[in-house]
Design a protein around this nucleic acid. Structure first.
Lengths: 274, 274
DNA sequence: GTTCCGCATGAATCGATAG
DNA sequence: ACTATCGATTCATGCGGAA
């Protein structure tokens, strides 16, 4: 059975009311940042941002399963020599509205936007704010394990040369004790810092983030046949990756051209237009 | 002339009143985090943290030069499944008290604290919040330039082979114009993500951060004979590095054992005890 | 077929200029 | 004075044409 892709044209706040309550396992989205995307989205002012976003956050809370997770990709820009504070205020307001602020991941962008200024360096990281409805949520940590760093590999290689032949009964020495946990193991759990390139200009699809980014969180917070939602679909990276990974996907997009573009790219997956 | 090191025993808020106004070029410090260091510092509650810190922030504002910078190393930990919000509230309150929140650097710790939990990964980053009194402050960007990526080195090497001999009068072609900026260049400006190991275990001095961390900011925000202040000196990494780099250093520490330890380590630099 | 090189282009930011 | 627009700055990446 093919996984479903549903595409909703229109405003996020309105379209979200059409989704059933407690039906989504993961929300991964990157809303338009304050004062950005003037041409396509009209640009939300930094002072109105929290007020603009919270009704949407409330609807997202409604459609998310109690075991589900909401990952919000955002980064405040510099304004008159200072960083804007609206993201901080947004986090505080989200908690007032019942969301748990579980974690803040860092996306470390390898290739940040160039430029030089007298008072700051290039901005090469973005926030990935994890919110939950409940303290108990689904997390499949083994799905995102990474190969161990060379430091560990080489250390273990040398370690095994000398220690493999040790009498296993010599446990409790504080060192040999842990060897069994490390031998034959070349994978480690990742951290809350994700290091990826931006990959902006692939096939004339302007994407805010590389496919690896939603892929990582989809692997971490959903299993096959779960449902992934992106209420600010844009060029559709999240929806496309979710579909490719055997998840059901729901996308909302207000710009008709973007929605049509996604519909064409995903044609073989039977998208359902409402 | 040797640079001076002044060590003040006692509480940060009280001792700061003994420093002259507008006398410090850089404040670099890592205060006790909320609910941490119970045994040595008494442990400040996360709910009282902002209230506890702001009087100190006011004194720091008083002693910092208008062209100076305040770098605050801090990271909220998880409590009952959520990240604490006191750091966010602190940033907002600092702005209310007249500080400019210029930038947030990320310290990406290569070898973060080990551990495994069902609902989160290891925390491998900390905030380095940059605050200023004025929009115009001293910043010596050339001091912290880093080698360019290999890709660029090889490509620029080839570039210079062909373009060095170009007629310099061919300006305005959009490309040749900038060649002079790039020829013989193998260094680039860094970003706002700092990637360092933790190095906690040097010479039985428990340090919150590696020497490279204050070193980077001291290079960036001060020149020789400037004054660096750490109001929560701890094992004295900031003060020691500043002294070694030819800066005057001021350290405040409430725990006598730590202060004495620093005094011994820095003996050859004529510390002045008050 | 590879490898190499030219080039466009990004959730950027500041300072100057114009209305 | 306060806001909108524009040019200059800069670096990693992928693409396409050339060697």
């Amino acid at each position: 059975m093919k996984n479903k892709v549903k595409l909703f044209p229109g405003d996020a706040k309105e379209q979200l009311t059409k989704l059933p309550s407690n039906s989504v396992d993961l929300i991964f989205t990157s809303p338009p940042y304050a004062e950005r995307r003037m041409t396509t989205y009209g640009g939300v002012s930094q002072h109105e941002y929290v007020e603009w976003f919270m009704p949407i956050a409330d609807e997202l809370h409604e459609v998310l399963k109690p075991t589900g997770t909401f990952v919000l990709n955002i980064k405040e820009s510099a304004f008159n020599g200072e960083r804007s504070t609206y993201v901080l205020e947004l986090i505080l307001k989200m908690r007032e509205h019942g969301w748990l602020w579980t974690e803040e991941f860092i996306w470390h962008k390898k290739n940040s936007y160039p430029g030089k200024w007298p008072n700051r360096f290039r901005d090469s990281w973005e926030r990935l704010l994890q919110f939950n409805k409940e303290r108990q949520f689904n997390m499949y940590q083994e799905e995102v394990m990474v190969p161990m760093g060379d430091w560990a590999k080489s250390r273990l290689k040398n370690l095994s040369q000398t220690d493999k032949v040790r009498d296993p009964s010599r446990v409790g020495s504080g060192f040999g004790k842990n060897i069994s946990n490390w031998i034959n193991r070349d994978m480690a759990y990742p951290t809350n810092v994700i290091h990826l390139a931006t990959e902006c200009n692939n096939k004339n699809h302007p994407a805010a983030f590389p496919e690896e980014l939603p892929e990582w969180f989809i692997k971490l917070f959903t299993k096959e046949n779960d449902t992934v939602l992106d209420p600010f679909m844009g060029s559709g990276t999240t929806v496309l990756v979710a579909n490719r990974m055997g998840r059901n996907a729901v996308g909302i997009e207000i710009v008709p051209e973007y929605l049509e573009m996604v519909r064409e790219r995903i044609e073989n997956a039977e998208p359902v237009l409402f």
